[in-house]
């Protein structure tokens, strides 16, 4: 009975996986994005370390998320730019737009998780590890990577159509991720034991809610962008 329903869903999953594999291969051959981001994170943390020497937990928390924010923006901004428009047209004729945005978002979630773990490792190595509650902090990192990559990927799809996409990407996405970022900083402040809060599960629920909502909006609206 589910046969007729599962066929398009299966096709969608297949397409998504194939597109993700393509992105991964491109990255693996070029190694451009990840090494660039790594260098960016490393040099920023080095500057922080040399100017602060001793990073207090409160500054640690703020700096960590600011560095991660800029790292993720520069990791994602090229999502829709790296491939030229004839090739975009080729994808357009072949694939479902949902599969395109889903594959890019999932790929970027993976990328951001790697980037955020590397950022944390850099901080821990040079500025010291201020995290007290590991499970809570990594949960924040996970939910943050998901939320940031959904919004950034969607905005990159819009900004990619313009000439100055990097500027446009930054000014369009910063106000949009503000709710996510405020909740994340609160959550990780709790994981660093900067403040004690018993209602932290509400924050996690809000974050998961925002992630789901923006994913829904992105899937709903992306076909209109794709129709160019």
């Amino acid at each position: 009975m589910l046969g007729w329903l599962s066929l398009p869903v299966m096709g969608l999953i297949k397409e998504t996986l194939a597109l993700m594999r393509k992105d991964l291969l491109l990255e693996w051959r070029g190694k451009y994005a990840l090494s660039g981001i790594l260098l960016y994170v490393f040099s920023t943390v080095f500057i922080i370390y040399t100017s602060f020497e001793e990073v207090e937990p409160k500054a640690w928390n703020t700096l960590f998320w600011v560095v991660l924010l800029f790292a993720s923006i520069s990791a994602i901004v090229k999502s829709f730019v790296q491939e030229n428009s004839p090739r975009q047209l080729y994808y357009y004729s072949l694939t479902n737009p949902i599969a395109v945005i889903l594959s890019k978002t999932l790929y970027n979630i993976g990328l951001l998780m790697v980037v955020s773990l590397l950022t944390w490792a850099c901080f821990a190595l040079m500025a010291g590890n201020a995290v007290k509650d590991n499970s809570q902090f990594f949960l924040a990192l996970f939910l943050g990577s998901v939320g940031l990559s959904i919004t950034f990927t969607f905005v990159a799809a819009i900004a990619g159509k313009a000439d100055h996409s990097a500027t446009l990407q930054a000014i369009m996405s910063f106000p949009l991720v503000l709710p996510i970022l405020l909740t994340l900083i609160r959550l990780s402040a709790n994981a660093l034991r900067l403040e004690q809060d018993s209602s932290i599960s509400d924050d996690i629920a809000i974050l998961a809610g925002i992630d789901l909502l923006s994913l829904g909006m992105a899937l709903l609206l992306f076909p209109f962008l794709w129709r160019e």
Binding site: T151, F154, V155, I158, M172, P175, L176, V177, P179, I210, L213, S214, M217, A218, L221, F224, L225
Partner: peptide, 9 residues
């Protein structure tokens, strides 16, 4: 598209 997405955010 941006207007709708931004309003929800």
């Amino acid at each position: 598209v941006y207007n709708i997405f931004a309003f929800v955010a």
